[in-house]
Design a protein around this nucleic acid. Structure first.
Length: 270
DNA sequence: CCCTGAACCTGACCGC
DNA sequence: TGCGGTCAGGTTCAGG
């Protein structure tokens, strides 16, 4: 479920419930996630949440003694629960607060991660090499044009590489390419300066709008309050193969690119 | 360095 | 109902 808008929606949802709250205990019901949840995660007990941040699709719980680095993978979600709520299947990690509330990490496919570091979190190997935030001033047309030169990889795969720019996953890559009238299979290095400008603008617009609408709900995604996101109603191409293009009414096409479903309008996108 | 494909997992859905 | 095949929002890693 989570791309950047879903992760940001989650961050905003949990922050008011956990910021400054003391950690009374930790329950690891299944440590086998993307990487094993380290034993050292228990060192957060007795500490408190000093900050709730996001870098790309990583959530960072800043404590006084270190940082919990979380990733929701493909199917992960975080929810703030009350005292007596029973565990659900796939609730793998629970952080219990002195208030009686708890933060629960739920992840059926277990591609997510929960790590602990006492070092500077942005220098952690998983974060150190990440590209710019897509909504920051560092992500601009000249940057995209420069890093795409001589790259033969399809532009869609290229933009989904978090070392290029963080937070653009499969849904929003498809949507932004449609908005910029660029086919997903085009070689990255063949984008013109004008197209780089279009594409960067489209990425910023689509992510901003999705965050405003609380993310995209597919299947069972609920935000930290248990509410769905509404961006799914705004999708122009994702999941719409065979349906009419909203611009020209010809059917949207579906094609696999690097093992990921790609959707585009063969008429509107070149 | 560049690029591709496999791997990590569970569950939903579709056709037979 | 059951069974097998396919697909799913992400990312790292091995290998050519």
């Amino acid at each position: 479920m989570p791309e950047l808008p879903e992760v940001e929606t989650t961050r905003r949802g949990i922050e008011p419930h956990i910021l400054k709250h003391g950690v009374a205990g930790v329950v690891v019901r299944n440590a086998q996630l993307r990487w094993p949840v380290p034993e050292t995660i228990h060192s957060i007990v007795g500490d408190h949440i000093a900050a709730v941040k996001r870098r790309g699709k990583y959530l960072l719980l800043g404590m006084t003694q270190g940082t919990v680095i979380m990733h929701l993978g493909m199917s992960g979600s975080l929810r703030v629960c009350g005292k007596a709520e029973p565990y659900r299947k796939h609730d793998h990690f629970i952080c219990c607060f002195e208030t009686g509330k708890s933060l629960r990490f739920h992840d059926p496919r277990r591609f997510g991660a929960i790590l602990w570091t006492t070092e500077e979190p942005y220098e952690h190997p998983l974060l150190a090499e990440l590209g710019p935030e897509p909504l920051s001033a560092k992500f601009h047309a000249e940057y995209l044009y420069r890093v795409t030169r001589n790259r033969r990889m399809p532009i869609k795969s290229f933009i989904m590489n978090s070392h290029v720019v963080v937070g653009v996953g499969n849904i929003y890559a498809n949507e932004a390419l449609f908005m910029a009238s660029i086919r997903p299979g085009r070689a990255a290095g063949r984008l013109t300066k004008a197209e780089s400008e279009q594409f960067v603008g489209a990425i910023k617009r689509v992510l901003k709008k999705a965050i405003q609408e609380g993310g995209t709900t597919l299947r069972d995604f609920l935000n930290a309050e248990g509410n769905p996101g509404y961006f799914v109603q705004s999708l122009q191409v994702y999941g719409r193969d065979g349906a009419p293009c909203q611009q020209c009414h010809r059917p949207i096409k579906r094609k696999m690119i690097a093992q990921r479903a790609s959707y585009y309008c063969p008429a509107c996108q070149t």
